[in-house]
Design a protein around this nucleic acid. Structure first.
Lengths: 352, 352
DNA sequence: TTGTAAGCGTTATCAC
DNA sequence: GTGATAACGCTTACAA
């Protein structure tokens, strides 16, 4: 691999850095003065135009145009105690499932006039706690959290904030407020049953990711054994998952754990893809000698060869459903259900 | 492909939805009363503890602990006109380059006490304009934008807001404030030169993505022709890129545009991967009959077979550099450079 | 239809 | 070291 460097340079072009004006911002007061009305009328013109006469409305809009007035939502939120801000906390936006959920969630929220404050919690619980406090200080109208495990202090703060809280990507019978997800343990068990029903008696797991990925692998392993399969070899890595990890995973299973063939359940399609690549390098026939099952149904999964058999979860549905649950709670001060199980499905393709 | 549905159900478990208290929030006033001091002292205890005696400090913290007080950052921001909020606008967080940039940007910002308000602009300029207005109303301390093309109205609002603005992922000699990126045209030209130098005389492009992807393809095409190569066939798709699009791209090039072999420059590694898969299906030798060059150096690119020759841009560096530029401007009210070109490099692997 | 007045929960500026 | 007091720029009664 040879590399060609290009253009790594920086130039100084002055810019407008020097003279930033100390300008007092333009407020509703300013606009009102220009339009010959009081500040409140400007406020009304913006929040409920029907309460203002067409003539003054026109003058106000003209003044807004002239001044380039942008309302101060901080002041508005302080006065009304409605921030129109929603907090969203996910482990990582580079993980495509979380990115997909957030995108869907945000889209629905934006369409309803809300803005998202997004933070990544990484994979440590203490980090989440700090972030929750930071977010709460902005007085969001609701909060979206990933997963159902949160520190006691975090739960206390959340309860104290007295806003709708939706936990996504997992379910529990005792959500803080409402949860939207699926059972990770059920997923692992269903895959074990699928594998067993398809005649596989030897199995391995390649897992990389958070605690939920491990939970799926564990449930798979237990069920597979209970069905009479052999002990399940597990190759486990820290998050994040990658194609490289998948290749290493198969190598580890075969070279260090005596796994010689059968089915491999991976905690993501990216890993499954890596297993597939490594299998081809080793001249293994898929699904003849080695069967592979992934998780997540990434957009490439149906288009690689062999196409990946996987577990599909509808991330967009999670995001949308979570958004709707939140909106319902914000607007009606209540919500119908507190546990929304969106399930999953096994998609059989060529790899298993 | 057969599918097995699982658990798609929802249950009602009551939750705490019913009784949301109308409780007046706990403020610094409340805390102060409990600690036997005034509200201001509580404020000081939090913002500059050295200005408060150890004894009262202890009492205040005790009161905070008891009440679960969380400061109201909205009020703080209104009073101090420092929101400690940074706006970030990207086309899509599901695109791994943008996700990577945002992650790096956010990490640096968070370490400096700032929080990120993130929105996706999609690929329409009017959408960006609306979002800029919405973000500005929250009075962010700075704003990060993707790309250098913004509507006139957007520029006006940004200038009027009088906050640091950093444009990432592209460069121009006339940034709004500061830009951090690389030249997309130079990238296309460099790839053309690389391809020509390696003996390829026939070429195609597969492009899917935004205007910048098209700019790279166009620059590649022009340069390739200028160097004496043949006319370049182009298969173009709307964003987003996917493996499937890559497969379709090669198919279109070969079946509809008479491309029979040579080098294919793709606007992302995902597309390149698709081209590779399609090439294998068609029994084409890579890089013998078909050479493939991608863009972005995704994490799988080095690990598929053949490993993908690609253009690497350091997304983390963009995010970090953008963050530093912003911090510099916030804190010093100025910034050294206004154009930061971080360049790119061609990474040769097996596919070309 | 429009205006007045009283907050919202902080920070900033003085005084003590 | 601590406390009044006045902003900050809105929204929400309540009057006119």
């Amino acid at each position: 691999m040879d590399e060609h460097e290009h253009n790594a340079a920086s130039r100084d072009a002055g810019g407008r850095a020097a003279g930033r004006k100390p300008a007092r911002g333009v407020t509703m007061e300013t606009v009102g003065r220009l339009a010959g009305v009081s500040q409140v009328t400007v406020s009304r013109a913006l929040s409920d135009p029907s309460k203002v006469s067409p003539k003054t409305l026109a003058k106000i809009h003209e003044a807004i145009e002239m001044t380039g007035f942008v309302p101060n939502a901080l002041a508005g939120a302080l006065a009304s105690s409605k921030s129109k801000l929603i907090s969203a906390l996910v482990p990582s936006i580079r993980n495509f499932v979380y990115a997909g959920m957030v995108q869907a969630f945000s889209a629905v929220m934006r369409d309803n006039g809300y803005q998202i404050m997004l933070s990544e919690t990484g994979f440590e619980p203490e980090e989440e706690e700090k972030l929750i406090a930071a977010h709460l200080s902005r007085r969001p109208d609701a909060m979206m959290l990933t997963g159902i495990h949160h520190s006691a202090q975090a739960r206390r703060m959340l309860l104290g904030a007295d806003i709708p809280v939706v936990e996504v990507w997992d379910i529990t019978d005792s959500p803080i407020d409402v949860c939207v997800g699926f059972s990770h343990a059920d997923t692992g068990r269903a895959v074990a049953e699928f594998a067993h029903a398809n005649g596989y008696r030897q199995a391995g797991c390649v897992a990389a990711g958070d605690e939920r990925a491990r939970r799926r692998a564990r449930a798979f392993s237990e069920r597979f054994k209970a069905l009479g399969g052999e002990g399940v070899a597990i190759a486990q890595f820290d998050a994040p998952a990658s194609l490289e990890r998948g290749r290493q995973g198969l190598a580890q299973l075969m070279d260090a754990q005596g796994f010689s063939g059968g089915v491999v359940f991976c905690s993501s399609d990216l890993l499954a893809h890596g297993v597939l690549v490594e299998a081809r390098e080793r001249g293994l026939q898929v699904p003849g000698q080695l069967a592979v099952i992934g998780f997540g149904d990434q957009d490439f999964s149906a288009f690689v060869t062999p196409a990946i058999t996987t577990v599909r979860v509808n991330m967009e549905a999670f995001g949308q459903s979570a958004a709707r649950a939140v909106l319902e709670r914000i607007e009606a001060q209540r919500g119908d259900q507190s546990v929304i199980d969106l399930g999953f499905e096994i998609v059989r393709r060529e790899s298993a």
